[in-house]
Amino acid sequence: MTLRAAPQNRPEDFDLAALADGCCERLAAAYEVRGMIAPPIPLPVIEVQHEAEGVVTLWVQVPPEMVADYNPGQYFMCWNPYDATGSMGRPNYHSEKPYSVGDVKIDRSGVDERIAADTGGSGRTMLGFTVKDLGRQSGELTRMAVGDWLAVRGPFGTSFPRMNSGDRLILVSGGIGSTPMHMAALDARRKLGERLRIDAIMGFRNAVEVHYIERMDNLCDSLEITTDDGSMGTSGFPTGPLPDLLSNGHEGRTVLLTCGPEPMMKPVLQMAVDAGVECYAAMERYLPCSVAMCGLCMVGDRLTCVDGPVMEGDWLLQQADFGAAH
């Protein structure tokens, strides 16, 4: 069955910008109620940005206050209600999954600059979700096109700790764990400018999947790339260059944040804890419901969806069920 509301069935002269504006207004109304959108709200994808092979960023238009309130580490549930043929199937494969926000921007294309200046500057506030082809569901998302529906709800969960002037941030990512690390760097720079040091290590399997380098390079004081196979940057895992960063004495508070597969995060956190560095991980678990109902996201005695995804490194290291691949 193909349905009229499936993007594939829209008329030729369809006005996507008008639809995006309408959906954005609807999102704003839902968001106003409690600073969170509870049901999934479909938004048309405005732009699909190629990042690397099998890695794309899907841009959707959202109200500016949502971006202003967003705390890095938090996640949204993202869902594609239609498959590539415009049918929804039952059961469909496009099960909803959690994604961290990867990037934000204000799109001024189509804005009359003179009017924009008069009204204090306007444009479309855009949220970017970066997805990697990891399987059936995220694979579908990487093949989405401009105009397709991406239904989102959130933001959910805990966020990274507040940084202060004079602090130092160490960011360690593995694979698509790059996205919350980028938001942490972006947020810290916006709030503190140059009054904080940011050092980052980004680990990838190989050169082909390397992404977000330019974004991170613009924000960080130092950036090290590692690939498992040595096809780019330093050969090996992100734990390779980490001891140097940890021993590089910084006066004042140092905070390490990490996101990636658990077998990568575990040694990273261990090294930080051993060096006496405050550390947190953004957990990448499959969260079936995201609202504390299913009970299938336990780590130790916590639910990842509400007590996480950001959790303290020293606590995680004590949990027997932390550190395996998921």
């Binding site: 049901p39 059961p91 496009h94 099960s95 909803e96 709800r153 299913c294 299938l296």
Partner: peptide
């Protein structure tokens, strides 16, 4: 196994659907 998501949402005030 779980059904495909969304599996549980707050559809509006006071209304949970699953």
């Amino acid at each position: 196994e779980m059904y495909p998501g969304p599996v549980c949402v707050e559809a509006m005030d006071s209304v949970i659907l699953n």
